[in-house]
Each structure stands twice: as structure tokens, then as C-alpha cells.
Write a protein that binds this DNA or RNA. Structure first.
Length: 930
RNA sequence: GCAGGGGUGGCAGAGCCUGGUCAAAUGCGACGGACUCAAGAUCCGUUGGCCUAGUGCCUACGUGAGUUCAAAUCUCACCCCCUGCACCA
């Protein structure tokens, strides 16, 4: 009968919750293990990608629980930050895309209407996400849930930031953000058209002083080192230019770039007069590095809305500059003297530039596409292989020279830093305005660049176990790389920034040591403790053990015993914390968690284990809300069963690889589960009581499996573990049946152990199997099976291998006969004489072959052959004739059905049998009866 | 650009650390067969190319070069893909 996975799941989920078996309390003499996956952000329903992460955590939780640890698996909800507010705002603006997305997410129409209020979004998704957690049988202690925007938690965050301040890592500074000049808002990825992240890049803008004037023409450049070869400047003939004072220095930039200047510099004054390009054309400017006077020319490739609307022209090292300069010079009867500054082997610049020029101007107009193509490869080559040929940079490679020249220009006031949005396509705010870089002054930062702090963080990493091992490098790398990080932002949900109450605490920073909250939040609720009671003294005491309960009690009004139990709960659970997350969060969340733990928490409370897993993609495509191909957790549970999905997503791929969720694979798992239950139903019809060879084989496989799976579980190699625990088990059971295995005791034991091995990944199936096998207890609370090493029998497994290779020979033989159209009545299989097995086993035991030859003189050549084989390392294990005979007898029926012919197993020791060509211990004799 | 991870047969994915036993585990898919009224499940076989069909030959593990008696495996260079890159969770 087809198994109803959904019914089983519901039954056990209810049982587990009713019996509260996953609610964890402090048990003094039991080792704690707290596993914390990243809490989900509550702006949508959980999808199978989430399920991968939470199942991986659950596998750890269940496994460790079965290994005798006191396990705490808590969950909370993340709501701080901007995305939720952004959704609400977009709904308030009647954004149709947003509405469509929510509809894809199966949100009812009336709920969508209400979601204009961000709190409604939070309130809607929390229960939905909880439903999914429960449905998937996560072994979570649900009493400890909280939301990151609740007042109790805010108190903790305030304390955390006060700690950061005390430790001196909260610093003020300036930084640059993508900015909408129209709405006067910082724009992140979700605020832009097409959801692109505005990338801010710092370049240099070189100041060319206009001759006989106090104005500078500002030229943005990617290649400051080429300034020594500038022959002229280019501006756009059709553009308008303006004067702008930055720190009282007068610059001339295009009208379009005014907005960039205004936003990224502090002291800016824009002049009203508008200059035509023609009023500048032909004038001379001074090259600051060599005081050469060079003219301003015009060219239409200069974009007024990129950079400053003016560029320097270095004809020998830029195809645009070359082509346009030459065109301009030719048409104006001027002379062009390109100067070579960079030498690149195998690159003849003059020839190349001529080539570009001819090709690009072939049709009486200038083909920019051709120029661009040349430029691209020229830039790359010069950057990689170029060597400077001018003093004082002669002999230097381009990479180094660029840095040196930049430094020289900036320190001498010949250039200024200039920020641009680096994206290839122009980035626009949802309102339609062009996004610009904006300087933010007096912004609070967390200084993750602090050397002392970095050292502490690395110490934490040094002492942490990291899964998969491959990720370790990424963690160190991220720790090295992370520097200043904004600590506050202007909008979103969350805790007010203590040092600037107009702002909200940046929401990655408020989810770094939040896990500490799980250890006592249920006590706060039980005792009805109010937010205002959670003073800094409270957290100092609970988290850092500072102060005494009496004083803190007086301060907070929380009674002493409650305080003590909170402190105890924290120090118990937080003595062993395993943090799990998606691998994309290594450079952000996880690294920040590492740093904050290292700085704020006592050493004994540092994170002990860090692990990450990869993405889930669906049918080879990335899941995305806007594409509408997100596979929702609850839908998939209905369709395939929660356990099937769990196995697929959490054990289908290595931790570090992405998993491709496809129908075929998942259906395959479902069928295999069905097989297990079918087998279970068949046990009642099995009646063998004696242990046969095949039973020993199955025992051997089972115990080897337990041993291997345990090893893989310890290193969190879930795929390897469950290939063995699930897929291989099923193959072995099938094989057992093919060999006529029918011992109910053996099968029952196998299935019982299997049920336990499967518990971490398929808890419902496990629990159901366990109970159907007659057990009363919860499989989820049983001990992890231990292998019985004595039952691991290499010999019996070797015998099965020998049978395999012999069966293969038989199959080959019959297929040959079939090809030749020869018919036969039956196949006789001869098992070698006892004497030969004795010889074989003696040789395996390293008995001197010569001795054996004396004893068995008529088998001398056989002894020689086996001695050779033994030397090659071919045979190692003793063979038991009676077992091989018995195994073959058991396999006879199955073989008969495969080959569709009569099979007879014969014993060469039986005198009645004519034995012209000898059967060998590892090579049966096969005779076809025609 | 910087950093991390990769490129293996129709697909997924092991193996590469510790070179040979690797035409490359395992799973899936596809094809053929058995069973079935039929479908599914199950079982058996084929699944780089070639033919003389042999435990045969050729070509293969991103590309090129090198080390070696021997390279998917070691070294170097190159190409390509994925992920992250700052206020965004």
C-alpha cells in the first residue's frame, strides 16, 4: 500500500509538540550543544533554500541529541532593516510589480492590502514561517522565539552598542552611498530600477589649470599614469559647462555633472554662468606634471553626464583619444604628436593606432564600436605587461606606476578624489532619477578594521571548528578584508541608534550576537519582565558575569533567583554554540558575528563551531521572487512529503555545493521510502530462524555502515553519510532478498538501526518505522547506534564479491551463446573441492607454498598460481566453502529468473560428479548443458 | 578589478592532497529486454569511438606547456564559470 507521508508527518509533529520533547532545559551533568541557524527574515514565506539551511541545522541537532548531548535548537525572526518597510512603501504606492510578487508568493488579496503597514507584514509571515518549521519536523524549542523588533530585544541591542562604544570600535567618519538626488534618500539594491546594486568607485580627477585664469578643467581618469602623454583635453561640443567652487577652488565641469559634485563634496558653490563648449575650445590648459600647455579640443565621444564631461587625451595609449585627436587635428590643420609612455612587448602601438584609425574612419564617420573593441584589449595588455618608459617611473609596471602617480597627483594638489557609480548601465532610482554617489558626514561606523579586534577575531577562528573545511579560508579572508561598516541608517525597522536617536541601528549589526537572547528569553516572558528592567547592568551580569545579583536585582527589580537562573541558563548554553548559515553570509553576517563575539563576550562563550551550506536551485534555475519560480516549503511538503524534501535539499549535495531540486530526483527518493515500508509489511511472511551466510553479510554491511555514517556525520558530510544510510541501505536490502535472505530478526534489526540512522534527516519516516517495528519510545530520543565491530566481516563481503565476478562470467557466457543462437537446457555451477579451499586459505595465512606442494603434490600448479596472485596483493581473505555454496544456493532462484534457464549448484566434492576441469575456490566452474 | 570556490562522460557528482590498479565510483536520465491487458514499480542489459568483439585498439577528465618510465591527479601560464564586494538582508 502506498504510504501516506503527509499523514505520518502530521501525526509525529503533533506527538513531538504535545510531548514537548524538544524543549531544552539546563541539565547540570549533561553536555550542552546549542545549534543556531540564521534566523529567517520575515518578508516572505520559507522556500526550499531555507529548508536546506534549517534541515542541516536540524540534522546536527538531532544527531547530537542522539549522541547524548543536551541540545538546544532555537529559532527567532528577523524583521529589522529596510526590506519590510520597502515592501510596505511600494504597496502604499500601488506598485503593481510588488503586488504581483506577493501574489506569486500566494498571499491573499486582503492581506496584501493590509501590508501597507510593515507590522502587518511581520505579523503575517511569522505564523506562516512557524507552520513550515513545524511541518518539516524541526526539533526546535519554540518557547524561545522572538522578533528582532520587539522592545525586550531592543534593550539588548542598546547594550551591545554601548559595549561597542565602550570598547572604542564605534567611530565617526564619512562615507559614500548611492543616493537619489530627487527623493534625497540612500538607495540600496531594492530601491533601484531592475534591483541593481549601485557600485561606488573612487577615481582621480586631474586639475588642468586654464591658462591666464583661476579656473581648472577637471578631468576624470582611470589611468592617471598616462598624464605624461596628454596632448590635449576633450570636451563635448554640444554640452554646456558651469563653474563650481569646491573648497573655494574654481572648477569647470559639465552642467550634467554638477549634481555629482554637489553630492560628493562638502563645500560646494555652483556658479550661475553657463559656458558653451565653444567658449572653451582652443584655449590652453597647463598639464600639472610637466607644465606643458595643451589645447582644449572637442569630441563627441565625451559624455557630459559621465564623470566631469571633460577628459585628457593621450593618443598613444587610448584608441578613442588617438582617433578623435587625429580627426580633429587633421580637420583643423593642426599637428598631433602622440607620445609613448608605456612599452609592451609584441605591441607596436603606432601600427596599431593607425590600424584603428583606418578601420574606425573607413566610412567617413567614426565607428565607436571598433574603437572600443581595440581599447578593451589595449587596456588589458598594458595593465598586465606594460612597463613605463618615462622618468621617474621608468621600468615600473603599470599597476605600480598608477598607484605612485595617483599618490603624487593627490599629495601635490594636482588632482582630487572623485566618486562615480561604476555600473556599466546607468543606475536609476525607482523614482526615475539617476543615482549619484553621496558623501555622508558624521556617520557612525563600526571599525572592523581595528587591528586588535581583528587579532581577537582570528583567535576565535583559530579555535573554532569550521564545516566544510573548505570554508575556513573564506572566513579568514573575510576577517582580514572587513573594515569600516556603517552602524546606523536613516530608515527601516529596528532599534534606535543610541548616539543618534533619529537613526536606526544597521540591521546586520543587530544580528551578530543575538543568539545569546535565546538562552533566557523564555524566562523573561515567564517572569513577565518589562523592557525597562533590562538595564546595562542586567546584561553585564547575565552575559559577562559582571557585578552581583543583589545589586543588579536592586537596580532592575528582577528578583535574585530569576537573575541567577538567567545567568545560569546563559552560561550553560552559551558554553558550546554552533552557528550555521548560508555560505553567502560568510563575508557579512558570519564574520560580523565572529567579531562581535570576540569583542563583547567572554572567551568561554565564543562561538565553537561555524558551518555553512550552499544554495538550492530549482530545475537548474536560480529561484527568484521576481521570476516567480520560488518553490515554497509548504507546497513542496504537500507535493513530496517533508522528509523527502529534507533528504533531497540537505543531503543531496555537499555542504559547499548548490543543490538542484528536480522532480525526478525527488520522486526517486519517495519511491525508495515506499520500498522500506513495503519491506516492513513483508517481514511477517518471513520465517527463517537460522542465521545464514547472507545474514552475516547483511550484518556486516549494517555495522560497517553505522561506523562510516557516524564518521561522516561527525564531519558534517551529509551527502556521504546519507548515500550510505539511505541509498546504499536500500540496495543492500534488495540484494539480501535476491540472495533469498528471509530472516525476520535480521531484517528487523537492520530496519531498526536504519530508522535511527535516518532520524536526523528523515525524522518522520524514522519515527514511523521505529514504531511499526514495535518500539514504544521516540526514535528522536533514542541513542545513536554504535557499530558492532565484530560483525564487520571482510571475509563474507569478499565472498560476495567473488560471487559477483563469477555471476558476471556466467552472464557473459550466456550472452555469447545467445548471440550464436545456441540453445541450452541448464547451467551447472561447480563449487571447488574442500582441499582447494584449504590450500587457498593456507596461502592466505602465509603458509610456505613449498610445504603445501609437498602435501598436495597434484595441485602444484594451482599453488604456484595463487602464490603469484598473493604476491600481487590480489587475495587477502579466507574463503569458507560452505558459505559460498550456501550463498549460491540462495541466489539460484534469482539467477534463474534473470537468465531464464535452469541453474544447478554442484559440489565438486560429491563423488558422483564428473569433474574434468577443476573448479577453483574463487572461480567456479560453469558448465552449459546443451 | 579584488577575494573565495570551481571547470571530469547526456546530467548530477566522486576521484585529485598521497601520480600507475581510471574509459573514470555512485546516482539519475536515455535506449533495449523480462514481467504486466496496460502504466508504474521491480529485475536484466547497453550507454566515448572503432572493429577483427579481444578483459583489443584509438581518443578522452577547460586550453597549452612542463616534470615523470607513467598525469584527471604534480608545476606554470592562459581561458571560462559561480559567489561575495559595504549599509544590502
Amino acid at each position: 500500500m502506498s504510504i501516506d507521508l503527509v499523514a505520518i508527518e502530521n501525526k509525529w509533529n503533533e506527538e513531538w509538540l504535545n510531548k514537548r520533547i524538544f524543549e531544552a532545559e539546563v541539565i547540570d551533568n549533561k553536555k550542552p550543544y546549542m545549534i543556531v541557524p540564521a534566523f529567517p527574515y520575515v518578508n516572505g514565506n520559507l522556500h526550499i533554500g531555507h529548508i536546506r539551511t534549517y534541515t542541516t541545522a536540524d540534522v546536527v541537532a538531532r544527531y547530537k541529541r542522539m549522541r547524548g548531548y543536551n541540545v538546544l535548537y532555537p529559532i527567532g525572526f528577523h524583521a529589522t532593516g529596510t526590506p519590510i518597510v520597502a515592501v510596505a512603501e511600494r504597496l502604499a504606492n500601488n506598485d503593481q510589480d510588488m503586488i504581483k510578487q506577493l501574489k506569486n508568493d500566494k498571499i491573499p488579496e486582503d492581506v496584501i492590502q493590509k501590508m501597507r503597514d510593515p507590522i502587518e507584514i511581520v505579523n503575517y509571515f511569522i505564523p506562516r514561517q512557524l507552520e513550515a518549521f513545524k511541518r518539516y519536523g524541526m526539533s526546535i524549542d519554540y518557547r524561545r522565539q522572538f522578533v528582532s523588533i520587539e522592545p525586550l530585544f531592543s534593550k539588548f541591542i542598546e547594550w551591545q552598542f554601548n559595549k561597542l562604544y565602550e570598547k572604542g570600535v564605534l567611530v565617526k567618519g564619512t562615507h559614500y552611498v548611492g543616493w537619489c538626488p530627487l527623493e534625497k534618500n540612500a538607495v540600496g539594491q531594492h530601491d533601484t530600477k531592475g534591483d541593481v546594486q549601485p557600485e561606488i568607485e573612487k577615481l582621480v580627477a586631474i586639475k588642468f589649470k586654464l591658462k591666464d585664469s583661476n579656473d581648472y578643467i577637471l578631468c576624470l581618469t582611470y589611468r592617471p599614469e598616462t598624464i605624461f602623454g596628454a596632448t590635449n583635453l576633450f570636451i563635448n561640443k554640444n554640452a554646456k559647462y558651469r563653474r563650481v567652487l569646491i573648497d573655494n577652488v574654481s572648477y569647470i565641469v559639465s552642467n550634467e555633472s554638477i549634481i555629482f559634485v554637489e553630492n560628493q563634496f562638502n563645500n560646494v558653490e555652483v556658479k550661475d554662468d553657463v559656458l558653451d563648449a565653444s567658449s572653451l575650445e582652443g584655449k590652453l590648459v597647463v598639464n600639472p606634471v610637466n607644465n606643458e600647455e595643451i589645447p582644449i579640443w572637442t569630441a563627441d565621444f565625451v559624455e557630459p553626464d559621465f564623470g566631469t564631461g571633460a577628459v585628457m587625451s593621450v593618443p598613444m595609449h587610448d584608441a578613442f583619444d588617438y582617433v578623435y585627436s587625429k580627426v580633429y587635428a587633421t580637420s583643423h590643420g593642426l599637428e598631433l604628436k602622440p607620445r609613448k609612455l608605456i612599452d609592451t612587448k609584441e605591441l607596436d602601438l603606432e601600427k596599431l593606432m593607425n590600424e584603428v584609425y583606418n578601420e574606425a574612419t573607413a566610412n567617413n564617420s567614426i565607428n565607436r564600436y571598433i574603437i572600443e573593441k581595440y581599447n578593451e584589449s589595449l587596456y588589458k595588455k598594458e595593465f598586465k605587461d606594460g612597463i613605463l618608459t618615462i622618468e621617474p617611473y621608468k621600468g615600473m609596471n603599470v599597476k605600480e606606476a598608477r598607484e605612485r602617480v595617483k599618490e603624487y597627483l593627490l599629495s601635490n594638489g594636482y588632482a582630487i578624489d572623485y566618486y562615480i557609480i561604476a555600473n556599466k548601465e546607468k543606475v536609476k532610482c525607482r523614482c526615475g532619477a539617476l543615482v549619484v554617489p553621496k558623501i555622508i558626514n558624521d556617520q557612525w561606523f563600526i571599525d572592523y578594521g581595528n587591528k586588535e579586534w581583528k587579532k581577537l577575531a582570528k583567535e576565535l577562528l583559530d579555535n573554532a571548528i569550521i564545516f566544510p573545511d573548505k570554508a575556513r579560508k573564506a572566513f579568514y579572508d573575510a576577517a582580514e578584508w572587513i573594515s569600516l561598516r556603517a552602524a546606523e541608517r536613516s530608515n527601516g525597522l529596528g532599534t534606535r541608534f543610541p548616539f543618534n536617536k533619529d537613526h536606526i541601528i544597521e540591521s546586520l549589526s543587530d544580528s551578530t550576537i543575538y543568539m545569546t537572547f535565546y538562552t533566557y528569553v523564555h524566562i523573561l516572558r515567564d517572569k513577565k519582565i518589562r523592557p525597562e528592567q533590562l538595564s546595562f547592568e542586567f546584561f553585564d551580569y547575565v552575559i559577562n558575569g559582571i557585578g552581583d545579583p543583589e545589586t543588579v536585582s536592586e537596580k532592575t527589580g528582577i528578583d535574585i533567583s530569576t537573575l541567577k537562573s538567567i545567568r545560569e541558563s546563559f552560561s550553560y548554553w552559551y558554553s558550546y554554540v554552533h552557528r550555521h548559515s548560508g555560505y553567502d553570509l560568510i563575508p557579512s553576517h558570519l564574520t560580523m558575528a565572529v567579531f562581535n563575539h570576540a569583542l563583547i563576550l567572554n572567551r568561554e562563550n565564543w562561538l565553537k563551531v561555524l558551518s555553512v551550506n550552499g544554495y538550492v536551485i530549482a530545475n537548474s534555475e536560480k529561484m527568484s521572487k521576481s521570476l516567480g519560480n520560488v518553490l515554497l516549503a509548504l507546497d513542496m511538503a504537500d507535493k513530496y512529503g517533508a522528509d523527502v524534501v529534507r533528504l533531497a535539499v540537505a543531503a543531496g549535495a555537499n555542504l559547499f555545493s548548490e543543490y538542484d531540486f528536480t522532480d525526478v530526483v525527488v520522486n526517486g527518493i519517495k519511491e525508495s521510502v515506499q520500498f522500506l515500508f513495503d519491506l516492513l509489511d513483508n517481514i511477517s511472511s518471513m520465517n527463517e530462524t537460522k542465521l545464514k551466510a547472507i545474514d552475516y553479510w547483511l550484518y556486516s554491511k549494517l555495522n560497517r555502515k553505522i561506523k562510516e555514517v557516524t564518521e561522516y556525520m561527525e564531519s558534517l558530510e551529509l551527502r556521504e553519510a546519507y548515500v550510505r544510510a539511505f541509498y546504499e541501505s536500500i540496495n543492500e536490502l534488495k540484494r539480501y532478498i535476491h540472495f533469498n535472505g528471509n530472516n525476520p530478526v535480521v531484517i528487523t534489526e537492520f530496519l531498526e538501526k536504519l530508522a535511527l540512522l535516518l532520524n536526523p534527516i528523515m525524522p518522520h519516516v524514522s519515527e514511523e518505522l521505529w514504531h511499526r517495528l514495535g518500539n514504544e519510545s521516540f526514535a528522536s530520543l533514542e541513542s545513536w547506534p554504535t557499530p558492532n565491530e565484530e560483525l564487520i566481516d571482510d571475509s563474507i563481503e569478499a565472498m560476495m564479491d567473488i560471487i559477483d565476478s563469477n555471476v558476471e562470467d556466467i552472464k557473459r557466457l550466456t550472452s555469447m551463446l545467445a548471440k550464436k543462437n545456441k540453445s541450452y537446457k541448464r547451467i551447472e555451477i561447480y563449487i571447488a573441492k574442500k582441499e582447494l579451499y584449504d590450500i587457498y586459505n593456507s596461502l592466505v595465512e602465509n603458509i610456505n607454498p613449498e610445504e603445501l606442494k609437498n602435501k598436495y603434490s597434484n595441485y602444484a600448479s594451482i599453488i604456484d598460481n595463487y602464490t603469484k596472485k598473493l604476491k600481487k596483493g590480489g587475495m587477502r581473505l579466507k574463503l569458507d566453502k560452505s558459505m559460498i555454496y550456501e550463498l549460491m544456493e540462495g541466489y539460484k532462484e534469482h539467477l534463474r529468473s534473470i537468465l531464464n534457464t535452469d541453474i544447478v549448484i554442484l559440489d565438486s566434492d560429491n563423488a558422483a560428479i564428473r569433474d574434468d576441469k577443476m573448479a577453483l575456490p574463487d572461480k567456479f566452474k560453469i558448465r552449459i548443458q546443451e
